[in-house]
């Protein structure tokens, strides 16, 4: 196991389903925390409600498991009261972009100094597979039995537009790249947003002909395109295949930030 000093081993195995990507994202985030050399008593994890939001429960630090959608609001409070703490937020696509959408854009606008890791499985996993604001067009879920008919949010682009200092996107297949992105995000002052496309075999895969865990990973791998390549293709006016999403670093800048360590 990675980062054994940070896991609450007495709580393992965790509640996640077989092959759920959330476990991988916890591994990568804790590997990044170790690389940063942070101390446990100087680090706090904050989350809302959802499968993804259970992550801090498996980590040996102080944590806040807050109400649905409010992780960023609580984290803002923690950071403003104690700027010396390292604050990391785990959140899900529903938690962050549906009920918590307002907090998301304002945390980015304020550029509060923290690291936000969003496990975007494009579904409400915990409550049984209802469609979320990131469920792709045409995807099946319990609330979109004929295929989703609404366009989806691109969370990373949303964070860029709202003002976060560092924004990256990877998938739960790209473990090394993801760990590096989380480290870079933790080093950057201001809000660092890392979207991770993860697999939810139980409530997304099962409805979308991706029942086996490796099928979902293969889907993520084959639909991810480096942002540089995407920009080159679009600049040359070449077509981009359907269903492709960009991965890599989307923005790194130094807008004024709040709650930076003194």
């Amino acid at each position: 196991m990675i980062a054994p000093d940070w896991f609450r081993e007495d709580r393992l195995p965790h509640i996640y389903c077989t092959g759920c990507g959330n476990g991988t994202v916890i591994n990568c985030t804790l590997a990044a925390v170790e690389e940063m050399g942070w101390k446990r008593n100087e680090t706090a994890f904050v989350s809302g409600i959802g499968c993804s939001s259970r992550a801090p429960g498996y980590i040996l630090t102080d944590s806040l498991h807050t109400t649905h959608g409010r992780a960023l609001a609580f984290a803002t409070g923690v950071k403003m009261a104690k700027p010396d703490l390292n604050v990391v937020v785990f959140t899900g696509d529903g938690d962050l972009a549906a009920i918590g959408g307002n907090h998301f854009i304002h945390a980015c606008r304020r550029n509060v100094d923290m690291t936000v890791v969003c496990m975007n499985n494009q579904i409400y996993g915990m409550t049984g597979g209802q469609g979320s604001p990131t469920t792709p067009l045409g995807a099946f879920s319990t609330t979109t039995p004929y295929g989703a008919s609404e366009p989806a949010f691109d969370l990373a682009e949303l964070a860029v537009a709202a003002g976060a200092n560092y924004v990256a996107r990877w998938t739960s297949y790209h473990v090394k790249e993801l760990t590096k992105a989380v480290v870079t995000g933790m080093q950057a002052p201001g809000l660092a947003f890392i979207e991770v496309r993860t697999q939810c075999p139980t409530n997304y895969g099962r409805h979308n002909k991706l029942r086996r865990v490796p099928d979902m990973i293969e889907y993520l791998r084959s639909h991810a395109m480096l942002v540089d390549k995407y920009n080159r293709l679009t600049a040359e006016g070449k077509p981009v295949p359907d269903g492709i999403f960009t991965v890599g670093e989307l923005v790194r800048r130094s807008r004024p930030a709040m709650g930076v360590k003194r």
């Binding site: 196991m1 092959g19 476990g23 990568c28 590997a31």
Partner: peptide, 14 residues
């Protein structure tokens, strides 16, 4: 390397 340990969602590889 360590990729298997990193991707293992259940912290089972060491």
């Amino acid at each position: 390397c360590g990729v298997c340990q990193m991707i293992c969602p259940d912290q089972a590889i060491s």
